[in-house]
Amino acid sequence: MTAIPETTTTVHLDVPLTLPTDDGGTFRVRQPIGAHRTQTEGLVVFPALIDLYDFDESRWHVTHVDTGLRLPVEFDTEEQAAAFAGAVGPLVDWTQPRPALPVDVRMQVMELALEHGGRLDQRVREQYDRRNATPDGGGE
């Protein structure tokens, strides 16, 4: 990725988007968006992308710049999303093209998301609940 001057508040990146087809299937495209910088280099926030041209500003996502992949959580406000991005900053080097996220770090990220008012995606919530269902937190 090309370095972005610190004075730039908007970062342009391509995010993957899955679109429905008329036959009931789906296909993936990469949609260019303008996202807002956070205090954590490598993470940006933007309102939920609901199709190629529409955003939902009542739902905010945190996305890794190099991959364009969002963290599996959403927030009600940009401020909550940005605060979460700041909180997870020290856990991983988010400037890496593919940051390493071992299980213990993923659990910390999920806990911080919940602490900052985030809603985990269903699949991730189920993983989180399973890991916390045992006395040692190690899953089944």
Rank of each mutant, 00 (worst) to 15 (best):
Y128M: 13
G25S: 14
T26N: 10
A48R: 15
H64K: 02
W94N: 05
V62Q: 03
E41Y: 03
Y53D: 04
D93T: 10
F46P: 03
T77Q: 09
T7Y: 03
E74C: 15
E78L: 12
T63P: 01
P90Q: 11
T63R: 08
D14G: 08
D129K: 14
G138S: 06
A87K: 14
W60D: 08
E126K: 13
R125G: 01
F84E: 08
G117C: 02
P135S: 14
T21I: 09
H116G: 06
L49W: 06
A48F: 05
Y128N: 13
Y128E: 07
F27H: 12
E6F: 09
E126Q: 15
A133H: 03
V88M: 13
P97K: 15
L13R: 07
V65A: 01
L13E: 04
Q127L: 09
L120E: 04
T2N: 09
N132G: 04
T26Q: 11
T67Y: 01
P20M: 04
F27P: 02
M1G: 05
A85S: 02
Q122N: 09
L19F: 12
Y53W: 12
W94Q: 08
M110W: 07
Q122P: 01
V92T: 13
Q39E: 12
V11W: 05
T95V: 04
L120W: 06
Q122W: 14
F84K: 10
D121N: 13
Q96I: 02
E41C: 12
D104P: 02
L52W: 02
V88H: 10
P90C: 08
P16F: 14
A83L: 07
G42F: 03
F46N: 10
T9W: 03
V65I: 10
F55A: 01
T26V: 06
L69K: 15
G117K: 15
F55G: 01
A100S: 13
R59V: 11
V109Y: 05
L69H: 15
E74N: 14
V73K: 15
T2K: 12
V103E: 00
H116P: 01
L17K: 13
T8L: 02
I33M: 02
T95A: 08
P102Q: 08
E57F: 11
L114F: 03
Y128L: 11
M110I: 05
L17H: 07
T10G: 06
A113S: 04
R131Q: 11
G117I: 13
F75R: 13
P20W: 10
M107S: 04
I50H: 15
L17V: 11
T77N: 03
T21R: 14
T95Q: 02
R119M: 02
R28E: 01
V92K: 14
D23A: 11
A83M: 05
A83C: 00
N132I: 04
L114S: 02
G89Q: 12
G118C: 09
T38D: 01
I4Q: 05
T77F: 02
D66M: 08
P72A: 13
G89E: 06
T18F: 04
P72G: 09
T9S: 07
E79Y: 06
E140N: 07
T18A: 07
Q31M: 13
